[in-house]
Design a binder for these strands. Structure first.
Lengths: 246, 246
DNA sequence: TGTGATTGCTTATGCTATACACAATCATGG
DNA sequence: CCATGATTGTGTATAGCATAAGCAATCACA
């Protein structure tokens, strides 16, 4: 379980990249990283991230807790692998290939959002670094590919994808956590709560927003709000590309 | 410690809004919420969020652990109050009042970034809901105020601020965690690590980005990257406003 | 004056991650 | 063919965590 194949990455992560195929002495492993991760993901999906403890995952596998540490150096690594599995490979544009970067990125964003909504537990995992696992890189690949013919610099392309992915994750996190908070305490309604706290004198702009119905309790127009942010970002990118072309 | 003044919020949060001034029997409280939060923030600042446990905070205050629970119903509430204290009031534009929404929002973003860089522990706290504490609302107020004369709907203004705050937080989180990861294992360099893992065949666009120097190991141009994302967003908002005006 | 609410404390419960030592396994070097 | 040493799974142990429950001291108000 030493971590050197030149990458400086933990062994479990290198395994995820398929770079560990050693034949070694000792008993045959009864588990596989894949099976462990799969079980943990299943658990997170059904009972939430809070239920994912090493003890619990091991119990689910019918194995002692410490057995897991033969495959993973720390829980953080397992979580990282869970993330990668949860995100999965980006869907390939099926048939009707989107033409143009804008359609491509828009599709990318909606696909990503869809994944986060399907696996909301992913949003409970704090981001601890730049994308480094295979599936995350695959998503990055698809996003960068959409920008292939745009004339942006490589650095700009990367920044664009980071900007977009940050937006999607952020927005998904906010809506999901708000929805969960609402379910938890039936009485909590953001808009009406805020209106009770906010003083017209001290917070005139926020008061105006409340009065204008901007802070709504129900979330029927959630998709519309997502679209709004997405279109703003795409517009901003469009402006840059026009500047670049002239 | 019952939670009803009509808002449905925990008592400690209502206290933060200054809505609890009861005179009650029983011994005078030896602590104050403020002092507890202050101590916890100090601890987070010097030793990181991981060091903030109820046991530790109590020890720091020279008090039994359970004493804290007379002021806070759960650790989550303390954390929420810590966040509010850490974010603080937004700096008031001093003297040279920014003219125009664009300058205003740009300033807002840089100010917010500055706060997050000063209190990086804030980035370790997952967002659990929409902004509800006084200082968070104050930041929202300042942002909305900058959009006062733009002709956007209230709902759009709010979306804009959410978009912007999400971007800043996201970007700060990524850079800080990357920097910390780099400090942790001296050998870890994102760019070179990625180049070892990424296969030209399978990930051509990512390979091109690496080859193009987009994924750089050092972070000298961090500010430039932040500016890039910020300008893209502001451009996008500008486009919307032009559409709205015509 | 005394009643009941409130504070802070002690103690206890059931979790968590993970360090360590050990027995069983098995590919490989002699 | 056999011994060596690496590797696996296990049981046990430690140090930490949030927080529930009960108890003694305090003090505003009826």
């Amino acid at each position: 379980m030493s971590d050197d194949s030149g990458t400086g990455l933990p062994a479990s992560l290198e395994a995820a990249w398929g770079r560990r195929s050693r034949t070694s002495p000792g008993p045959k492993p009864g588990l596989t990283l894949e099976r462990i991760v799969e079980t943990a993901v299943q658990l997170a999906a059904t009972e939430g991230m809070a239920a994912v403890s090493m003890v619990r995952v091991a119990k689910e596998l019918g194995v002692s807790t410490m057995a897991l540490y033969r495959y993973v150096a720390a829980k953080d690594e397992l979580v990282e692998l869970m993330m990668d599995a949860g995100i999965g490979l980006p869907p390939t544009s099926q048939g009707n290939d989107p033409t143009g970067w804008r359609q491509g990125l828009s599709r990318w964003a909606w696909d990503y959002l869809s994944v986060l909504h399907r696996h909301t537990w992913i949003l409970q995992v704090p981001i601890t670094g730049p994308p480094i696992t295979p599936n995350q890189i695959a998503w990055l690949e698809r996003g960068l590919a959409d920008l292939r013919d745009t004339g942006l610099t490589e650095s700009e392309k990367l920044s664009v994808i980071m900007l977009l992915s940050g937006f999607v994750r952020n927005w998904a996190g906010l809506t999901v956590s708000t929805a969960q908070a609402g379910r938890q305490r039936a009485t909590f309604r953001y808009g009406s709560t805020l209106s009770k706290l906010v003083d017209e004198q001290r917070f005139p702009a926020v008061s105006a927003a409340i009065a204008g119905g901007a802070i709504d309790d129900d979330q029927d127009d959630a998709d519309a709000e997502f679209t709004f942010g997405l279109e703003r970002i795409l517009d901003g990118i469009h402006v840059l590309m026009r500047k670049r072309l002239t």
